[in-house]
């Protein structure tokens, strides 16, 4: 029997008084494309950041590829992993940010090769060839030597996707990848993501693009106030929601 790639069990996270996640449990299966939708403050971005350990959870556990993230259990107690161990676990996930976060002092190609060269310590010519191929895959072969400031938002986000893919992750996390883009640039980024989904990559996508969710997602998860309210196939959750809160959200968005 296959195992989930990500298993989230009773995860809670507070920011001061604010409960961002309230005992959330969820499985993500290999090859699955999952879209997380919900109003801002519903916890969907926090959930994504917890999987990448940019945010540390307060309670519960997250397993990625069978490995417990961030902590080690021994004799009924949990011990925090070292920064090096956490860095190693992070390599299994690729993260794409809302605001791209490309390194502005490096070219598109250097942004992509930075991780494989510096963190994974791989050979330069091999990494370079892969980076060129990744740029071709996101349709930016001509922009290898451009700095981020010389690229449009859509091009920057496509470089950011290539940068994440260069680490050969098992899971891609997208945190509102098109929210900071001008409307005419959204399509080119979504096209790259669709291609990636088709290639079999496991993806978790926080998004407001319901059209994308309907077309690409295997499962849509609707979150509200730090909890999962409803989940299922896109046609069910988006087409015929059962929960009142989901209905209210969808009618407000569309």
């Amino acid at each position: 029997m296959t195992k989930p790639l990500v298993a989230i069990r009773s995860v809670s996270k507070n920011f001061g008084e604010f409960q961002a996640l309230k005992s959330v449990s969820l499985d993500v299966w290999p090859g699955e494309v999952m879209c997380l939708i919900g109003a801002s403050g519903s916890g969907k971005t926090t959930l994504l950041r917890c999987i990448n350990q940019l945010t540390a959870i307060d309670a519960g556990g997250i397993w990625l590829d069978g490995e417990l993230l961030g902590v080690r259990e021994q004799g009924g107690r949990l011990y925090r992993l070292s920064e090096r161990e956490i860095g190693r676990q992070r390599l299994k996930t690729g993260m794409v940010f809302q605001r791209f976060n490309l390194f502005p002092h490096k070219t598109a190609l250097e942004n992509i090769t930075e991780g494989p060269l510096q963190v994974q310590g791989r050979k330069s010519d091999e990494v370079r060839a892969e980076a060129v191929e990744l740029l071709r895959r996101v349709g930016l072969s001509a922009k290898a030597d451009s700095y981020p400031a010389q690229l449009s938002g859509g091009q920057q986000q496509r470089v950011a996707i290539a940068r994440a893919l260069a680490m050969k992750p098992m899971l891609m996390l997208f945190d509102e990848p098109t929210s900071a883009l001008d409307p005419e640039l959204v399509g080119e980024v979504l096209a790259v993501m669709k291609e990636l989904a088709k290639s079999g990559m496991t993806m978790m996508v926080v998004t407001h693009e319901l059209g994308f969710a309907r077309e690409v997602a295997d499962r849509v998860v609707y979150m509200d106030q730090g909890a999962i309210v409803e989940q299922g196939r896109a046609s069910e959750v988006l087409g015929a929601p059962r929960e009142e809160r989901t209905k209210a959200f969808l009618s407000a968005v569309i």
């Binding site: 990448n52 940019l54 920064e83 090096r84 860095g87 190693r88 992070r90 390599l91 996930t93 690729g94 993260m95 940010f97 605001r99 976060n101 490309l102 390194f103 502005p104 002092h105 930075e114 991780g115 510096q118 963190v119 994974q120 940068r163 994440a164 680490m167």
Partner: peptide, 26 residues
């Protein structure tokens, strides 16, 4: 920007490497 530090972490960099390669040059 804090996002630069997060992006460095996301590709597996530790604190000191992120400082040396990403934060200090900027």
């Amino acid at each position: 920007d804090m996002g630069q530090y997060e992006a460095a972490q996301a590709i597996g960099m530790g604190r000191l490497r992120a400082l040396r390669r990403i934060i200090l040059p900027q």
